[in-house]
């Protein structure tokens, strides 16, 4: 939910290691980050800080899990990936390597899924655009309710056949 961003952030971990010289903080072991309805779990989260003290997070896990309630629909969006990256400024969550994103509308997998948590939109692309063999697979399930709950990010698909997207022309994730 959009209001998540104003909520308190809770982080728990077995070990925090802070390195003042490198301005890096590492949370190791059973890392759980929650903020409002958003919840991320990982084995390790590395937090880097730039000169303006903006934070860049890299979460590694087997897998990293992500879960957040959606404003637009009465459901949760869930994500999994070997690695997740996010930062303070943009509300974008990047899921890398066996990335999977699931909501009541369906599920999508790929090398790289970028999910904009405030606009609740996602882009799928190969980690390196055009790498051969990186397939994007999307299984779309039509809305059970009528489509009144606002235009959906994904177009409706025929219920029977899963839609398989080619990954080559996928929007390059900047």
């Amino acid at each position: 939910e959009k209001s998540d961003r104003e909520k308190e952030i809770n982080i728990g971990a077995d070990l925090l290691t802070g390195d003042d010289n490198a301005r890096v903080t590492v949370f190791d072991g059973n890392v759980v980050i929650t903020q409002g309805t958003m919840r991320i779990t990982a084995n390790k989260v590395t937090v880097k800080e730039d000169a303006e003290r903006n934070k860049f997070y890299v979460a590694n896990g087997a897998p990293v899990t992500f879960r957040q309630k959606r404003d637009k629909a009465e459901d949760f969006i869930e994500g999994w990936a070997a690695r997740a990256e996010f930062d303070d400024k943009s509300s974008k969550l990047k899921l890398f390597d066996k990335a999977r994103l699931k909501s009541v509308q369906g599920e999508i997998t790929g090398d790289l899924i970028t999910y904009d948590t405030s606009r609740e939109l996602f882009e799928v692309g190969a980690a390196q655009p055009g790498t051969p063999g990186s397939r994007v697979k999307a299984t779309l399930v039509p809305q059970k309710k009528d489509a009144k709950d606002g235009k959906d990010a994904k177009s409706e698909a025929k219920p029977s056949s899963p839609l398989t997207l080619k990954s080559d022309s996928g929007p390059a994730t900047h």
Binding site: I9, I11, M38, K55, K92
Partner: peptide
């Protein structure tokens, strides 16, 4: 998404 939090400033 994650609001700013500043473990290092802490």
């Amino acid at each position: 998404m994650i609001g700013v939090f500043r473990p290092t400033s802490w």
